[in-house]
Design a protein around this nucleic acid. Structure first.
Lengths: 152, 152
DNA sequence: CCATATCTGTTTCAGTTGAAACGAGTTGGC
DNA sequence: GCCAACTCGTTTCAACTGAAACAGATATGG
């Protein structure tokens, strides 16, 4: 194998994709089984867990999901009775999304489950290794920003 | 925010998913634009670039794609004239997939493009940081294996 | 041998995806 | 004020996805 041949197992875009997909699959199986929701719904819950109320657009910005996905996830959660969707008094285009009591209770049960699973996964790293890993992830993402900006 | 609240930006499954998706999107845009193929096709090419001929199943094992996806990607590549699909002489269930001249030429043009893009992305890390990062990815994946094995 | 189980790759099918079109609401310039 | 441009969230549509059913080929074992 010369320099221009490509070892897929060493190719980081591929490696990250495989890793991320495995993790997502594992987590989504758990969310689905325990709470009947999928990852987009879970992300909406996680974001609202920190700050409330938010508009759909706020969630789009904080979640890296497109607005169609957010719209559908919100709709599902409203249908399940976990979110209330009110119209913003000052601007009727905006929604004001917040937990119903059932939604807050759901959040309080999911969040620990997610964190526990993550913690168990991360037992394979020392705390300083984890911090380093996350820092490198930050830089890899920053570099994507820079490459995108430069292109435009 | 107490311990049981969840900061999505610090939640590694989410972070990895966002990062992997951004990278995939960026790369797939390039493959599509320059060569008219998508990521599954590109993966098949990358694997055949190292070893030939292979059966579809060999590619499934090496690529972490399911067999439906591989079947479709192979079909596309055969349709584009980049792969030849022969029947294995000793076992008629197996395919023998290999590059046509056009396929080899395509591979020789894509691989450097992919590696160049990766190299530019990875300029944000020092060589030892990159090695460390990959090693941690390995351990995170290994831990997933272990957690899966334990469960079963 | 024959029946059954297993293996390979394809196809089907129902669900998901995201870009783009859209309708409703708001803002800004004239 | 009013029209055009813009914003927000929904919906449409065509493409993609993967689990499961499938058909054909091969292995197994009675």
């Amino acid at each position: 194998m010369n320099d221009l041949d490509l070892d897929l197992d060493g190719f980081l875009p591929y490696r990250l994709n495989v890793l991320a997909k495995r993790v997502s699959k594992e987590l989504s199986r758990r969310y689905q089984q325990a709470f009947g929701i999928a990852i987009p719904e879970w992300r909406v819950m996680a974001i609202l867990g920190r700050e409330q109320p938010l508009s759909s657009n706020d969630i789009v910005e904080r979640s890296h999901m497109d607005k169609a996905k957010v719209s559908r996830a919100v709709n599902t959660l409203v249908g399940l009775g976990h979110l209330s969707r009110d119209v913003h008094p000052g601007d009727q285009r905006l929604l004001r999304l917040s937990f119903t009591p059932s939604g807050r209770s759901l959040y309080q049960r999911i969040a620990p489950l997610a964190l526990e699973w993550e913690a168990q996964w991360l037992t394979c790293l020392q705390p300083d290794e984890l911090a380093h890993y996350k820092a490198l992830c930050d830089r890899l993402e920053q570099q994507l920003d820079d490459m995108g900006a430069e292109e435009a």
